[in-house]
């Protein structure tokens, strides 16, 4: 009996250089839908809702902005805050489907460089990047 493995034997012997394992993992996504106008007056409510969503600890938090008709600096600040909270909690935050007004706001303020933005809810939920860790 030889100790030397036969390299041409592919029936799962020792000296394996690459081990591939496949594991099923459910990605829990939470969609937070913002509809209407978000401004200074609605700031507190928005903060609270986003904080709750982050605290629920999903893998992926999608903020659906499609039904939002108005978003000013306080709304933007709420989203920035949520982004910080999400990062600290290991939650992946994605902004989905912003309308033209909000897209321009993100561009002018340069925040499109720090947010992950997807054109639609479907695209956002389809983000295939798995959480680290």
């Amino acid at each position: 009996m030889s100790d030397q493995p036969d390299r041409h034997d592919t029936a799962g012997q020792a000296d394996v250089r690459l081990r591939v394992t496949a594991r099923e993992r459910a990605v829990r996504a939470l969609v937070c839908r913002l509809a209407g106008e978000a401004d200074h007056e609605t700031r507190a409510a928005l903060d609270e809702a986003l904080a709750e969503a982050v605290a629920a600890g999903p893998d992926l938090l999608v903020v659906d902005l499609a039904p939002l008709t108005f978003c000013d600096s306080s709304c933007l600040n709420a989203l920035l805050r949520a982004r910080e909270d999400a990062e600290a909690a290991g939650v992946w935050l994605v902004l989905a489907g912003p309308g033209p007004q909000i897209r321009r706001l993100l561009a002018i303020t340069g925040t499109d460089q720090v947010f992950t933005v997807r054109a639609s809810l479907q695209a956002a939920v389809g983000v295939s990047r798995l959480p680290h860790g």
Partner: peptide, 12 residues
């Protein structure tokens, strides 16, 4: 040139 608003991120 682009530049993000103040107070949003630690390394603009």
């Amino acid at each position: 040139a682009g530049g993000i608003l103040l107070g949003a991120t630690p390394s603009p």
